[in-house]
Design a protein around this nucleic acid. Structure first.
Lengths: 221, 221
DNA sequence: GATACCATTTTGGGATACCAAGTTGGTATC
DNA sequence: GATACCAACTTGGTATCCCAAAATGGTATC
């Protein structure tokens, strides 16, 4: 793999894994030495990550994007539009057996599954469901939105009950899709997204002192 | 303005203006000499334009993205999802006087207006309408989709009647928004997008021989 | 002790040099 | 004349160098 892709991938994982905190300054020189690459691939990686919204310009330099509560709310509205459109398309397909794969993914999680895995599966559920629509643009929109939400969702304080609720909501959505009931699927997905958004924003809002104490920039809604 | 932004802007305009045709190969060295910049800003511009979908990798090199009829259809579905969501938000706003600005933009076009201007206004109508929603993600989605559609729409064979129909459909949408009738606005916008898509794809499909004769790569749906 | 000012350092933007891989064109051989 | 092979060139990827501007830190002044 080229250095360009290596740096991009490694830096993205550092950001998503909160190894570099939201709001932290990044210098091209630091990334250079950190990954043993020169500035050209570093530049390319920074430009890509900027379009993904994971980093942003800060005057002349670069900053890991802060957690922005207002942005999280806007993303939820955007997600609702694109995910509902995608799930309606999928529900109308003649061949919908691919939902089985997603169902199996959900069922691969149980009480012994590490939290990290729950987190990944929770994201992939939405991404893979959008992929089934066959519409590349809806798929990319969902994938990019989930990438932007990833850090915030990881910081969210979630108890067992919340994880279980999300799990059963996901299953209910799949059931409606399998039955070809586009309206029910849309309705359940919509409610799921809105509910997730509310819990997410509330959780981060309540925790914002603690998050800031950990050095994470959290800007208010 | 930095060279980076200069090259990016100039090259984007060359592509959108079809000065470099869809499917044409691009070399970094050519762009370098064409704009008198070095490879660093050229690289940055290429990476940005790639994320916009205007150019794509072709093995080791770069190619101006071909006109892809299947992609145009998918974009229409994507647009419908995000534009309808945006117009519903806007219709629900308490303060909707900003539609006047858009209406004035439409009315600035008459029979003496050059085709180029009609084209730009037709795009900006959708972009500015989405901006009014206040949702940054819906706005960007519409803007990016219109950028991707820009070349295809420019190549579309449109008669006076088609331009007039689009103009009155735009007005009808604004009227519904001003009245706060979200359902009517959504319905009219939806029909407008679907109709536009059909006429666009049909026109390009019928013209594909002529387009290829002009050296433009057009891939089928 | 606070502040205004200046020298130094750091930083990102740009230019250039170098390299490996892939392409091309020509030549020698059959 | 067709084809296999090789050398020269082209191209994108990478490393490094230079520069202007901005941040930094220390010092002198009030």
């Amino acid at each position: 793999m080229s250095q360009m892709q290596t740096v991009e991938k490694a830096l993205r994982e550092m950001i998503l894994g909160l190894e570099v905190g939201p709001g932290e300054r990044l210098t091209e020189r630091w990334i250079e030495s950190r990954f043993g690459a020169s500035r050209t691939p570093v530049r390319a990686a920074l430009l890509r990550l900027e379009t993904e919204g994971l980093i942003c310009r800060d005057g002349r330099g670069w900053t890991v994007s802060p957690i922005n509560l207002a942005e999280l709310e806007q993303i939820a509205v955007y997600r609702e539009a694109v995910e509902v459109a995608a799930v309606r398309l999928t529900s109308a397909l003649a061949e919908r057996n691919a939902v089985d794969v997603i169902e199996a993914m959900l069922d691969s999680c149980d009480t012994t599954t590490p939290r990290e895995e729950w987190h990944r599966v929770g994201m992939d559920f939405h991404i893979e469901l959008a992929r089934l629509s066959g519409n590349e643009f809806l798929f990319r929109a969902v994938r990019d939105a989930m990438t932007r939400l990833s850090r915030a969702r990881w910081l969210e304080v979630r108890d067992e009950a919340a994880l279980g609720r999300a799990w059963s909501e996901h299953h209910a959505i799949l059931a409606a899709v399998r039955a070809g009931d586009a309206d029910a699927a849309a309705e359940r997905l919509s409610a799921h997204i809105v509910g997730s958004r509310d819990r997410l924003v509330t959780s981060l809002h309540n925790d914002r002192r603690g998050l800031r104490a950990r050095g994470f920039a959290v800007v208010a809604a």
